[in-house]
Simulated assay, not measured.
Amino acid sequence: MNISAELSFYPFTDDFKPPVRDVIKHLEQQPGVDVRPNRISTQVFGSFDDVTAAIDATMRWSFERYDSCVFVTKIMNGDRSPKD
């Protein structure tokens, strides 16, 4: 089963851009997912197992790296990725 996820990351720091970029890079390194960042959030597409594993690994990594941060995630069934 394929799913589509939208992930927003909010680090509690004045200089928020570097942590956001780091989280996107980490997410892009996860296997089996199509990652599409935009100005508001990052969209992740792939199989249920790959997407949830990628989000889990990225959240764990960021919680260990940054003192305080919040993730907001929306997940829906089906591949809703834009077709290039």
Rank of each mutant, 00 (worst) to 15 (best):
Q43C: 09
H26R: 14
R60Q: 10
T13P: 01
L27E: 04
E6G: 09
F71N: 00
I75R: 09
V35Y: 01
T73C: 01
P82Q: 05
D79Q: 05
M76C: 07
S81N: 02
S41H: 05
M1N: 07
K83D: 05
D34W: 13
D84H: 10
F63C: 12
V51I: 02
I40H: 04
G32P: 07
G46N: 04
F16T: 03
V33I: 03
I3W: 11
L27D: 03
R21K: 05
D22S: 13
R80H: 12
I75M: 08
E64A: 15
H26M: 08
T52E: 05
D50E: 15
F71Y: 06
K25V: 12
P19A: 13
P19Y: 03
G78R: 04
A57N: 13
F16D: 10
F71S: 00
E28A: 15
T42A: 09
A57G: 06
A53K: 14
M59L: 05
P11L: 10
D15M: 09
N77D: 11
A5M: 09
V51R: 04
E28N: 08
V23R: 00
G32D: 08
T52V: 12
L7G: 04
P18N: 04
V44S: 07
R21V: 05
I55C: 01
D84N: 14
D50T: 10
V33A: 06
V72M: 05
F9W: 12
D34Y: 13
I55P: 00
K17E: 01
S4G: 12
P19N: 10
I75C: 04
S4W: 11
I3G: 07
M1Q: 06
D34A: 09
Q30G: 02
D84R: 13
A53E: 07
P82R: 10
R80M: 11
V51Y: 09
P11H: 10
H26A: 08
D79F: 02
N2Q: 13
G78Y: 00
S41W: 05
P31D: 14
Q43I: 04
E6R: 10
E6I: 01
D14H: 15
W61I: 15
P31Q: 11
V51L: 02
L27K: 01
D49V: 08
F9S: 13
S68Y: 11
F16G: 06
D34P: 01
G46L: 02
N2M: 07
P82I: 09
S47F: 12
D34E: 14
T52M: 14
S41D: 02
S47Q: 14
S62H: 05
K74P: 00
D67W: 05
S62E: 03
D14G: 15
E6T: 12
A53P: 03
M1L: 13
R80P: 00
S41N: 06
N2P: 14
P19C: 11
T42D: 05
Y66I: 11
N2L: 04
M76S: 13
F63Q: 11
V44C: 06
M59V: 13
M1R: 08
D14M: 15
M76N: 06
V23T: 12
M1K: 10
F9A: 03
K17M: 09
R65N: 06
V23Y: 00
V70T: 09
F16Y: 14
D56V: 04
T73D: 00
I24A: 04
F63G: 02
F45Y: 15
V44W: 11
S68M: 10
V23A: 06
E64R: 15
P37F: 09
T13V: 15
I75D: 08
A54F: 09
N2G: 03
I75W: 11
